[in-house]
Write a protein that binds this DNA or RNA. Sequence first.
DNA 1: AATGGCTCCAACCGCATCTCA
DNA 2: TTGAGATGCGGTTGGAGCCAT
Length: 346
Amino acid sequence: MARAPGGARRRGGGSGRRGQADGGQAVRKGHWTAEEDAVLLRHVLVHGPRDWSSIRSKGFLPRTGKSCRLRWVNKLRPDLKTGCKFSAEEERVVLELQAQFGNKWARISTYLPGRTDNDVKNFWSTRQKRIARLLGTPPRGRSSRSRSRSAKGKAPVVASSLESRPATVVPCLDEVPLEGSSSGVVHPCSAATPFMETRSVSAALAPYDWAGSGLFSFDDGALPLACNSHACSSSNAAALLPFDQPPYPLLDVQVQGVPAGWNWNMAPGFANAGATDHLAYQELLPLTQAAPMVLPFFDAEYPLGGVKAELPDAAPDNFDDLPPDVFDSFDQPPPPVSPPATSSGF
DNA sequence: AATGGCTCCAACCGCATCTCA
DNA sequence: TTGAGATGCGGTTGGAGCCAT
């Protein structure tokens, strides 16, 4: 079924429902606009994926922190396979893990690079309904709010066989056999997949270790493929990085209109976390609203009229100025052999 | 062309858990 | 230690697109 990549379908057609926040400030609900996404991305750039509540408390967006987090996790995160159906291999992994873990979608999703718990949950739900329909059995009720919290994840949680059987883990995108191969497994996200413009992504997200996160590859020769033939492990990828170069190409263009010389590495949120972040917003938001901006997570130009960023040929020389804890801002994605001890922050 | 069922998926809600003062 | 706020998770809902009739 040819569908537009998720998110674009209803853009602009959101419900626009509004609730009433405590204190009288209206809380916007429903579908996100491009402008809201831009603001949220700004927040992540400055603060990392945290402090969601401050987005509203500081007046940047009339959205709850939960809503902001959900939007980031499910749609704006750069490592998502948007618009890419579950492959046979992914389905197999879901089936196996669901049998082991029960409905622990967040946990299951850690085995599926690029998939969110919501993706897995939706996939499973659709699949269950399809099976129920084929078997002529009524789908298990949708109104099961009464189920006890303790009943969730009903399957016995035993030591995961997958943890000791890494071969079952979905391999890197690069190594999934293409359709027609002996296994018949379809590449889950082929080259035609609107995965993202990796160069642009890495450029725009410079303040964090996106390259070291193992989520992207760099095809310009400056960096090795982060997702190599053996693992998508961030640690592995990071280990491959030539540290005589910055682990990411620093940007000098993401937002047209940003003053020349603006450097995300100098973003107040990094240089002095929290102290002057509001200043950063004040400085950036009018620019993002007034000028075309680059939102590199999307293939198409952003509705605001942005253009894709071009990477600078030469890496800036102020990488060493970054505080070391900048790179702690993102949790590492799970290694391929076993799930992470803690759920990923992505 | 109209229509109804199905699929997909974004985003909400409520509760659980975590963090920090 | 504890309570409030923040964050995470799982279930659910609703709407748009696709497709068969």
